[in-house]
Simulated assay, not measured.
Amino acid sequence: MKKNSFLFSTKGIVLATFLSLNTAIYAQKTAEAAPITERTLSNILEKNRTYYTQGKVADYIPELGKMDAKAIAFSVVDKNGKIYNSGDVNKKFTMQSISKIIALMVAVTEKGESNVFDKMGYFGSDKPFNHFSNLETTGKPLNPMMNAGAILTTSLISGEGEKPFLKVLDMVRYITKNQGIEYNKSVYESEKATGHRNRGMFYIMKNSGLISGNEDQLDNYFKQCSIELTAEDLAKIGYFFANQCIRFDGDTTYKNAEIAKLVESQMLTAGMYEFSGEYSRMVGLPSKSGVGGGITVSVPGKMGIGVFSPSLDQHGNSLAGYHMILDLAKQYNLSIF
């Protein structure tokens, strides 16, 4: 009798454990399958709106300091290319460092990955985006996401004068299907007038033979950083790289799984600068921020996310933007890990 009681008890525990695991798996699959709605985005946005009070709008570039700290927007392009928006979705802001992933795509498409990365590394960094890092010792930038590497990347795009910049601008227009996108001339002039640190990086690389041209190449970098767009445009960019460089409407003109992998890997390891390691642990998605307050996110094989809030944390990343992405990633189990 005792033996039967033990067997029944053991079977009961096994059955209960099995049912518990199945319930957990079902709950996770349900969360993953649940559609994202504008109400979802709105709820997350409102929950995180006040984070702007804990950060600061970038003012080292005077024109950026004029942004409204309270502005906030949240956009998602789902796996079917459907767009969901919440907040100040018509508010334009400059790409800043987010433009680096577009320039990287253009440069690698033209020159090939090996010809670009024999001049810089694939490394992550524990230093801020504008740090010289090992530039003075090895002569090579750590990666194409820090300013030095990005300046070099843009200089590698072929063409005289502003042709390299126009290639970046045209690619942004193509990916977003938005021909109205332009660069903000006031922000460009402001960046050019105050970009002495970037100018120093440019001349160190020119001195080491990595760059052979003149300051027109640096001007192209300042111009690409000054390209103006919206959170929805960023979501479309995120979608593009998440889906093998296929546009949100299904256009496959630039389809290239390898370039998408390259760009996403750089976004994951260095896209949030010295915060990238912690961000990968908390969010677990390839992302690229800019000091204009935007962040673009790729959910591989699924969706693109775009956020905007110009109040930044100490790393130069949008504070409210980060928390909106974190909440969405948790709610829908989006992390790649």
Rank of each mutant, 00 (worst) to 15 (best):
N207P: 00
Y60S: 03
M272E: 06
S9G: 11
I181T: 11
F202Y: 13
A150E: 10
D249F: 10
T138I: 09
N184E: 12
K288A: 00
M1L: 14
G277V: 03
L41H: 12
N184M: 08
G316K: 04
K302H: 14
P286D: 13
G284V: 15
K2L: 09
T17W: 10
F93V: 01
G112W: 02
L268M: 15
K236H: 01
S318H: 06
E46W: 10
K66M: 01
A320D: 09
P310G: 10
D219I: 00
I61F: 08
A71V: 13
A193I: 00
S289P: 06
P310A: 02
I246N: 05
I237L: 13
F275Q: 14
L262N: 12
I336Y: 06
P286G: 09
L312G: 12
G304H: 02
K163Q: 14
M146R: 01
S318C: 06
A235R: 04
F241H: 05
I259K: 09
Q224S: 14
I157V: 13
I13F: 15
Q244N: 15
K79M: 06
N198W: 01
V76C: 06
D59A: 13
A193L: 10
M145W: 05
G277M: 11
G159H: 08
N184H: 08
G65K: 04
F93Y: 15
S208H: 13
